Computed example of a mutant assay.
Amino acid sequence: MMDNKMNRRGFFAAVAQIVGVAAIAPAALNAVFSSEASAQEKRRGSAPAAGGAAMPMVDPNDAVAKAVKYVEDYKKSPDSKGVNHCATCGFYTKKETKNGKEVGTCTIFAGKMVYSNAFCNSWNKKA
């Protein structure tokens, strides 16, 4: 017949396992959640550029820009209907002025800046 009582050695082994898990779990969870937060910042386009350098502008010849028919001047796009441009889009956030033009970030182009007067087919009315 098997004895269900835990002996002293078994008790201390179980305690050591619990303490080990309790010590490692916070570090593991922190690593998971901090990398998720970092990924979300990049998707929002609000992640700071590496080394504190200014974020680059979107290149209209970039593959993503071509896929959404990005143009730097909404007046040159027949799809913009005259009022649809980055400044009126929900994905756009004003950041600064470059060369006398307002620029900001866009969730479509993570890590890059767009002109406020630009347009793409992902335009979404600002709430």
Rank of each mutant, 00 (worst) to 15 (best):
M1Y: 07
D3V: 10
K5W: 07
M6Y: 10
R8T: 10
R8W: 04
F12R: 12
F12S: 05
V15L: 15
A16Q: 01
Q17Y: 09
I18V: 15
V21R: 09
I24Q: 00
I24S: 06
P26R: 03
A28W: 10
N30Q: 09
A31L: 11
V32R: 12
F33C: 02
F33R: 08
S35W: 06
A37T: 09
S38Q: 11
A39M: 11
A39V: 06
Q40C: 06
K42Y: 08
R43D: 07
G45E: 07
P48M: 01
A50I: 09
A50L: 11
G51P: 07
G52R: 02
A53W: 03
A53E: 12
N61S: 14
N61G: 10
A65P: 04
A65D: 05
A65W: 02
A67W: 06
V68P: 01
V71E: 01
E72S: 15
E72A: 15
D73K: 12
Y74M: 00
Y74V: 00
K75L: 03
S77T: 06
S77K: 13
S77A: 15
D79R: 14
S80C: 11
K81E: 14
H85W: 08
C86V: 04
A87V: 09
T88G: 07
T88K: 15
T88V: 10
C89I: 07
G90S: 08
G90I: 01
Y92V: 04
T93G: 11
K95G: 02
K95R: 13
G100W: 08
K101M: 14
E102P: 08
E102V: 15
G104W: 03
T105R: 12
T107W: 00
T107V: 08
V114E: 05
Y115R: 10
S116M: 00
S116E: 07
F119V: 02
C120P: 08
N121F: 02
N121H: 04
N121K: 15
S122K: 04
W123K: 10
N124D: 07
K126W: 00
A127V: 13
